[in-house]
Design a binder for these strands. Structure first.
Length: 440
RNA sequence: GUGGGUGUGGCCUAAUGGUUAAGGCUCCAGGUUGUGGUCCCGGCGAUUGAGGGUUCGAAUCCCUUCACCCACCCCA
C-alpha cells in the first residue's frame, strides 16, 4: 500500500474525524462513570453481555428501519474479503437481540436482564456531544411484556444518573402503542398535517412523506404551532395499550420518579412499541439528550426469532461526561502514586529497585525516579508527581541499610524527615499513610 | 448532507501588510557539591493547520483543503 507523499511529509497524522483520544487526565473520570454503570447494573441484578463491534448488516437494516437515517446515511458498512456485508454497530439493541436468539436465551428464566458498555459508530457530522465513535451504556430486559419491567428499566436509568450526581434531569415519557394503534394515529395525523402542508417547514414537508411522526418533535416554530392542535397519539391507544402505559406511570409514581408526559417523544427507530422515554438535563439545548429507551416487542421476531417482547435503554457516556465536567461534579486529574523513589548512584539504584518492588508487593504504588538526574531535579519530580512521600536511597542509606523518608504533603507538625531500617520501610509507609488519613 | 464561526510552540494568549513571530503556563536545568514546594536565573520548543495566490514584503488579504466549534438534519 502506498501513501500520498504530502500526507507523510507535511500533514500530521491525527485521529479520524469525529473520533478522539481519551487521555489519562480524562480516563479517570471515564472509569468512574464506567464503575458506576457496572455497580448500578449489579444492584438491579443485570448481567454483562459483550457482543461484537461488527455485525451482519442485516441485523440493523431489518430492525432499526430500512429508511431510517441511522441505516441510510449514518452506518459504517463494508464488505469483508469473503464478501460478507458487515456494519460497525450504530447501536446495540439489535445486536443483543441477535445474541439472545442465537444462544437460545428463550430457555433461560425470563426476562433475561442484560447490560453492555462499549463503542458505537455513526457516520454523522460531529458537533458538541456528538461523535462518530461514541460510548454507550445500555440495558436490555428481554422476555416479558410486564409494564413493571418498563418501570424497572426506567428506574435503573434514573438511579444511574442520581448515583453519578446528576440531579437536574428531566424524564419525558410517552407511549406510541402497538402497530394497530399507531397506524390509526398515523392516518389521523397525516390527514391533519396535509391541511397545513404548504405552511410546514421544508424539512417537515419532506417528513410528511417519509416519517410524519418526526414532525411532532420539529424545532421549527411554525411547525410547533401547527403541531399544538394535532391529534395526540395517546388518544389513539387501544384499551390494552393504554392500560400498559398507565401501569408504567403508576409504578413510576410509586417509585417517586417524576416525569412529564411528552407527546413529542416518538424516538427515531422503527422497532419501538408502547413506552418510549428520554432523559435530558433541565435547561439544556442542542445535543443534550443523555439517554433514551423504549419497549420493542416485535424486534426479536423481526430478526427471525420467536415472538419475544423486550425493553431497554441506552445512554451516551460522552454526554454524561460533558455534564459531569461542566457542573464540576468530577474533575480531570490523574491518580498520583503513593511513593516516589529517588535512587542515587548505582548501588542506590540496585537497592531502590528491590525496595520499590517490595512496596508494590504490598499494594503500595511506587513511581521510580533516577536516571542520573540531580537530587534537586528528582525532588522536584517527586513533588510534581503528587506522591505522598519520597524515599531516598543513596550511598549512606546503602551502607547503613536504611531508607530516608521525606513527607511531601505533610500535616502541620509531623517530622518531615525520618530514617528507617530498610526492613521496616513497608511498615513505616503504612504508618504515614494511616496517620494522614487520621489527620485529614 | 445544509448554513455560519474559528485555526499562532504541548496549553493559553500578543503581534489587526513591514526588521530574527512576543509573553505566560508546562517541561528541562541551575541558584556552590544529599533534600522538593515560594522565589530568582537559564534552556528546549512555532517558518502562524495544510496547499496555492496577490504583494517589494503575508500570521494578517484572496482561493482551495483539512480539522475543530455552533446551529439544522438526526441522535446518545
Amino acid at each position: 500500500m502506498k501513501f500520498e507523499k504530502d500526507t507523510r511529509e507535511k500533514n500530521i497524522l491525527q485521529a479520524p474525524r469525529g473520533m478522539r483520544d481519551i487521555l489519562p487526565s480524562e480516563s479517570v473520570a471515564l472509569s468512574k462513570v464506567r464503575d458506576t454503570c457496572r455497580e448500578v447494573a449489579r444492584i438491579f441484578d443485570y448481567r454483562e453481555i459483550v457482543t461484537p463491534i461488527v455485525e451482519d448488516i442485516g441485523v440493523f437494516a431489518r430492525t432499526v428501519g430500512d429508511d431510517s437515517d441511522l441505516v441510510q446515511k449514518e452506518m459504517y458498512t463494508f464488505d469483508d474479503r469473503g464478501g460478507e456485508q458487515l456494519a460497525l454497530r450504530p447501536e446495540n439493541t439489535a445486536g443483543v437481540c441477535r445474541a439472545y436468539i442465537e444462544h437460545g436465551m428463550k430457555s433461560l428464566p425470563q426476562p433475561v436482564r442484560l447490560w453492555y458498555f462499549g463503542s458505537f459508530f455513526r457516520y454523522d457530522r460531529p458537533q458538541a456531544g456528538r461523535y462518530r465513535q461514541l460510548t454507550q451504556f445500555g440495558i436490555e430486559a428481554i422476555g416479558s411484556e410486564d409494564p413493571s419491567l418498563d418501570a424497572e428499566v426506567i428506574s435503573l436509568q434514573s438511579k444511574l444518573y442520581k448515583s453519578l450526581g446528576l440531579n437536574d434531569i428531566r424524564l419525558g415519557i410517552n407511549s406510541i402503542g402497538t402497530q394497530s394503534s399507531r397506524s390509526n394515529f398515523l392516518l389521523a395525523l397525516g390527514g391533519y398535517l396535509r391541511k397545513f402542508e404548504a405552511e410546514l417547514s421544508e424539512d417537515s414537508q419532506r417528513r410528511l412523506k417519509t416519517n410524519p411522526m418526526r414532525i411532532i418533535d420539529s424545532k421549527d416554530l411554525t411547525d410547533q404551532e401547527i403541531i399544538k392542535d394535532a391529534p395526540k397519539i395517546l388518544d389513539f391507544l387501544s384499551e390494552g395499550d393504554e392500560a400498559h402505559f398507565h401501569r408504567v406511570t403508576r409504578d413510576l409514581d410509586s417509585l417517586g420518579i417524576s416525569y412529564d408526559i411528552d407527546h413529542s417523544i416518538v424516538r427515531g427507530l422503527d422497532y419501538y412499541t408502547h413506552t418510549v422515554w428520554e432523559f435530558e438535563p433541565i435547561g439544556a439545548s442542542g445535543q443534550s439528550t443523555l439517554g433514551g429507551g423504549g419497549r420493542y416487542d416485535g424486534l426479536i421476531e423481526e430478526l427471525g426469532g420467536p415472538s419475544t417482547p423486550g425493553v431497554g435503554f441506552a445512554t451516551g457516556i460522552e454526554r454524561i461526561l460533558i455534564n459531569l465536567l461542566d457542573k464540576g461534579i468530577i474533575d480531570q486529574q490523574v491518580i498520583p502514586p503513593d511513593v516516589f523513589f529517588i535512587a542515587l548512584g548505582s548501588e542506590g539504584h540496585h537497592t531502590a529497585v528491590k525496595l520499590a518492588m517490595e512496596l508494590r508487593d504490598h499494594g503500595i504504588s511506587v513511581k521510580a525516579g533516577g536516571g542520573g538526574r540531580s537530587m534537586k531535579s528528582l525532588m522536584r519530580a517527586a513533588n510534581n508527581s503528587g506522591a505522598f512521600v519520597a524515599v531516598v536511597i543513596g550511598d549512606e542509606e546503602v551502607t547503613e541499610q536504611s531508607a530516608a523518608i521525606r513527607i511531601l504533603r505533610d500535616s502541620a507538625d509531623s517530622d518531615r524527615n525520618l530514617k528507617v531500617p530498610q526492613e521496616d520501610l513497608v511498615t513505616a509507609i503504612r504508618d504515614i499513610q494511616s496517620q494522614s488519613v487520621v489527620d485529614a
